[in-house]
Computed example of a mutant assay.
Amino acid sequence: MSTKVLIIDDEPISRRITKNFLSQIEGYEVVGEAADAQVGFTEIVQKEVDLIFLDIEMPEISGLDFLRSLAKPPKVIIISAHREYAIEGFDLNVVDYLLKPVSMERFKSAIEKFEALNTTNTIDFKKVLGDYLFIRADRKHHKINFSEILYIESQADYLMIYSNNNTTWKTKETLSAIETKLPSTFIRIHRSFIVNMEHVKAFNRELVEIGGEELPVSKSFREVVVQFFEN
């Protein structure tokens, strides 16, 4: 079954380039195009969209504001000429952030990241029961109880998992993939950190103290952290 793609970009040339790249990759179907966010929203409502290629600077509504407005957005790959929005993009859990002009090699790399998030066979994390995960590290499969985990840190293509018994595991995975497999006591506080709120010693709107470390809370996740404790 093909992956259904929507392209939202106010530049016709950029839309054509994206379509051309996708035509060279098997299994992708462009089901819609939009030159602005309002038309893009209509396309999402009317069609089943699996992946959006999204520009940022567009008329009326920016790509980032458009993304924030979606309650349950599809996966998103940003294509922009502006490097300065990258952190905000990743804070919104985009799959990848491509800078124009985009090479075919870089485009394929973004597609591979998308496929890794959507193909269960490529994910080493497996939620076997409600209390633990198996992860692959050091050529072994390790059983980790959720209650042991202090926090998880993203380092490029790897994750560092820190436990309350001073054990650390390094495994090849993405933060977005593991986030879907964790129980509700785990909260994402930053594009690079997920914490087990049961182990949090103190917090404010900028920092979470856990395991003797102070981890940053990014602007996009501040209200989530505050609401967790208020509830």
Score class of each variant (00 low, 15 high):
Tyr151Glu: 03
Thr174Ala: 06
Tyr158Glu: 07
Glu209Tyr: 11
Leu150Tyr: 09
Thr171Pro: 01
Lys172Gln: 03
Thr167Glu: 15
Ser192Lys: 09
Tyr151Asn: 04
Glu206Phe: 12
Val200Tyr: 02
Lys181Ala: 10
His199Asn: 04
Arg191Thr: 06
Glu209Phe: 12
Thr180Pro: 00
Ala156Arg: 10
Leu175Arg: 00
Lys201Cys: 08
Gln155Ala: 11
Asp157Ala: 02
Glu173Gly: 06
Val200Gln: 04
Thr167Pro: 00
Asn204Cys: 06
Val200Pro: 03
Phe186Thr: 07
Thr168Leu: 06
Glu209Ile: 11
Gly211Asn: 13
Ala202Arg: 14
Arg205Ser: 15
Thr180Asp: 12
Thr174Ser: 14
Glu179Met: 01
Leu150Val: 10
Thr174Arg: 05
Val200Met: 06
Asn164Ile: 09
Ser192Cys: 05
Glu153Arg: 14
Met160Gly: 10
Ile178Pro: 04
Asn164Gly: 09
Thr171Tyr: 00
Asn165Glu: 12
His199Lys: 11
Val200Trp: 09
Leu207Val: 13
Ser192Leu: 05
Ile210Thr: 09
Arg188Lys: 12
Leu175Trp: 02
Ala202Gly: 14
Glu173Arg: 01
Ile210Cys: 07
Ser192Arg: 09
Tyr158Leu: 03
His190Met: 07
Asn196His: 08
Asn204Val: 10
Arg188Cys: 03
Asn166Met: 13
Ser184Met: 11
His190Cys: 10
Lys172Met: 02
Glu198Ser: 14
His199Met: 08
Ala177Arg: 08
Ile189Phe: 14
Ile194Val: 12
Thr185Ser: 11
Glu153Val: 10
Met197Ser: 05
Ser192Gln: 11
Leu159Ser: 00
Arg188Thr: 04
Ala156His: 06
Gly212Trp: 08
Lys170His: 05
Glu206Lys: 12
Leu150Asn: 12
Trp169Arg: 04
Ile178Asn: 00
Glu198Asn: 15
Ile161His: 01
Glu206Gly: 01
Leu159Gly: 01
Glu179Leu: 04
